[in-house]
Amino acid sequence: MEKNSLKHITKLVAIGGSAGSLQVLLRLFSQIPSGFSIPFLVVLHRNVQYESALEELLATRTALRVKEVEEKEKIQAGHVYICPPDYHVLVEKNHSFSLDYSEKVNFSRPSIDVVFKSAAEAYKSHLVALLLSGANADGATGLLHVRQHKGITVVQSPDEAEVSYMPQQAIQLVKPHYVLGFNDMVLFMQGLLLQGQAS
């Protein structure tokens, strides 16, 4: 990240995942320091039936404030926002959220593409988007959009991903900035924190 100038200071980290991503997400958050101020937006394909379990699970792994996205809510530092089941989440230019109950995208609602695309347009070079394990091509197009808007694209290494299809699709389409195993992902996140403190 040595080339980072001020315009790359990260203001939002968006994380998308599907099958096989929950465990790595939980492990990742248990390694993220409690003083981490950059907000996270997490979009996971999940079963409507297990509604609030993800918030509760994540909250046990991090001191950051974990909460479900609420419509029109302003994005704040120190928060981990979780996309609610069965709604698309859009990020507005004024850094607030909108919810949307329109058609599924890639058989998914919430769709990772929808989140990544709107976050890319709202945050441009200040966005980091991380795509984890999954058995669906959702997220790849969104990641491409992030890259086109000068955001930083990160994909979990397919060798480590429980289900490699989703990372592979993204790597083929996007040529992401980073393809990282778990340990490097942790270092990457710590690097973001240092970058924030230096600014």
Binding site: L90, K93, S98, S118, E121
Partner: peptide, 9 residues
Amino acid sequence: YSKASLKRR
């Protein structure tokens, strides 16, 4: 209308 969803539609 919310800007991001209007744009998307």
